[in-house]
Every structure is written in C-alpha cells, then in structure tokens.
C-alpha cells in the first residue's frame, strides 16, 4: 500500500491528495465508478433504474439485520440480504401479474421501513445515518481490497453476461431461441448489481447509489453510436465525474458522493442536445 501511496505522491503532487484519506478515497472512486459505469448500461437498457434504487434502499435492512444478529461484519449481512432481496424481487416479478413498478415499490418501502424500525430502536439511528449519504473519505486500505476484488470479478462476469443481456433487452423469446437462458441471465445480473451496491453503499450512500448507476449510462447514451462506445463512454464518464466530484468536494468542503452525482448530472444535461433525433 505504501508503494501505491508513494507512487501517487510522485505522479499526482496535488494539495488535495496530500492526505492518506484522500488517497484512499481516490483509489476507492477509481474502483467504484467503473463498476457502476459498466453495470449501468444494462440496468438502463433493461429498464431497471427503479429496481436498482430499491436494492440501494434494501441496504438499510441489511445493516439492521447485521446489528440485530450481531454479525461481526455488517458487510456479510448486507451482502447476504442484498442478494436474497434481489433474487426475491426478480422472482416475484416473474411470477406475479402485477406490474413490475408496483412490486418493486412494495419491496422498496418494506425494506426502508424495516431497516428504520430496527435501527431507530432506542433512538440509536444517528449512529447509522452516515449510510444514507455515504462517506468516501472513510475508506480504509482493507476496504479497497474488497472493492478491487468486486471490480475484477464483476468485469469477468460482465464479459460473459453482456451479450445475453443485450439480446434479452431487445426481446426475451428471441434471446431464448438463440440459446440464451434469459431468466438465469437476469438473475445473475441482479445478483451482480446487488453485490456492487452493497460493496459500495457505505461510501456512496443509500440516497445516491442509484444515480451513480444510472447517470453515467444515461449520459453515454446521449452521445454513443454503438454498443462498444456506449459501454466505454459510460465507464469514462463515471470515472471522470468520480475524480472531479472528489476534488470539488475537497475544495468546497462538502459531500463527495453528492458532488460526484452532480458532475454526472451536469454531463448528462450538457450532452442531452447531442442526442440523435
């Protein structure tokens, strides 16, 4: 880790990078933003913006269950709960005649309320309120390792899932006739999104996590002319906004997560006129 810090000092001799917590934050952002830029493309194509929002909210219940069970690491309970919740929403969506947005809304509000009820017992909620907005400046070297593994595993899985997901987003029966296991693909994707959300929720926050997933992909759509550039630009926009947001938050002394999302929103609105009619 010290080698990396030394390298950063040598290559990026900026004032804002002087502190170790800022170095960690920058590294975290370099790991989190490409992850979300990548996953966002298919979340948008498969009309899952609302779904990922619900997943972000479910983190609150995950934390709460961790607290109740006394699971040493909240991470484990959040991950387990997030994956189960994602699979459950998808299962109910497939096996119910109700419209998807109603089902997702039901699940989303249930998990927020459940999380709040448990965490607010005895007036202890203030302790956990940092999960709502996130704090990327509190990332430790150990957390970075977890994020790195998540990014690497997701990138490999993405290489296998991208084509089937794209095909399914156009037409599921057609995808199935081409040998794609549409349902399995969808479940795999929801699980990956759940893991990505849970791994990053502490740094990005329940309220902002979904914007990080949707905004870069939405902005990329404004300019990209094919699938390859859609993906590349989405990752690039996420990365640039991540770094810019972090620097801005340092000088403006404000929330990094919110600054990042604002940058992405700015890119979205600036590129909006470039949309092909």
């Amino acid at each position: 880790m010290n080698t990396i810090y030394a390298l950063m000092d040598a290559l990026l001799p900026f004032e804002w990078l002087h502190y170790t917590f800022m170095k960690n934050a920058l590294l975290a952002i370099l790991l989190i933003t490409p992850l979300f830029g990548m996953l966002g493309t298919m979340a948008v194509d498969n009309k899952m913006a609302f779904f990922s929002d619900a997943l972000g909210h479910s983190a609150l219940t995950g934390i709460a269950i961790g607290v109740v069970l006394g699971v040493g690491s909240q991470m484990v309970s959040m991950l387990v709960f997030g994956i189960l919740w994602a699979v459950l929403i998808t299962f109910v969506k497939h096996n119910s005649k109700m419209s998807a947005d109603t089902i997702i809304s039901v699940f989303s509000s249930t998990s927020i309320a459940l999380g709040l009820v448990i965490l607010a017992r005895g007036g202890a909620f203030a302790k956990y309120s940092s999960y709502l907005v996130g704090d990327v400046l509190s990332v430790t070297a150990g957390d970075l390792a977890g994020l790195l593994v998540t990014l690497l595993v997701t990138a490999v899985a993405w290489g296998m899932l991208f084509n089937p997901l794209l095909l399914t987003s156009v037409n599921a029966p057609l995808a199935q006739s081409r040998g794609v296991r549409a349902k399995l693909t969808e479940y795999a994707f929801t699980v990956i999104v759940a893991v990505a959300v849970m791994m990053s929720i502490r740094w990005v926050g329940v309220m902002l996590i979904n914007s990080l997933l949707i905004l870069p992909a939405a902005a990329s759509r404004n300019v990209a002319r094919n699938a390859a550039w859609y993906m590349r630009l989405s990752v690039l926009i996420a990365l640039c906004c991540g770094v810019a947001g972090l620097v801005l938050s340092y000088y403006l002394n404000t929330s990094a997560g919110a600054a990042i999302v604002l940058c992405a929103a700015a890119v979205y609105f600036v590129t909006l006129p470039l949309r092909r009619k």
Partner: peptide
C-alpha cells in the same frame, strides 16, 4: 418487437451478440 428504441445498439451489435461469444463492448 417492443424494445427501447433509444438504446445506442446498432444492427451489427445486435447480430454480433448472438453470433459471437466475445462481449460486444470489446
């Protein structure tokens, strides 16, 4: 088909998705 017509997916991308295992974003 009813699909998201604003997605930046070309005919080539669409065909490549089902003709090749290599991820189209590459």
């Amino acid at each position: 088909l009813e699909f998201d017509r604003s997605s930046p997916v070309t005919i080539m991308d669409f065909l490549a998705c089902s003709l090749s295992r290599r991820a189209v974003f590459l």
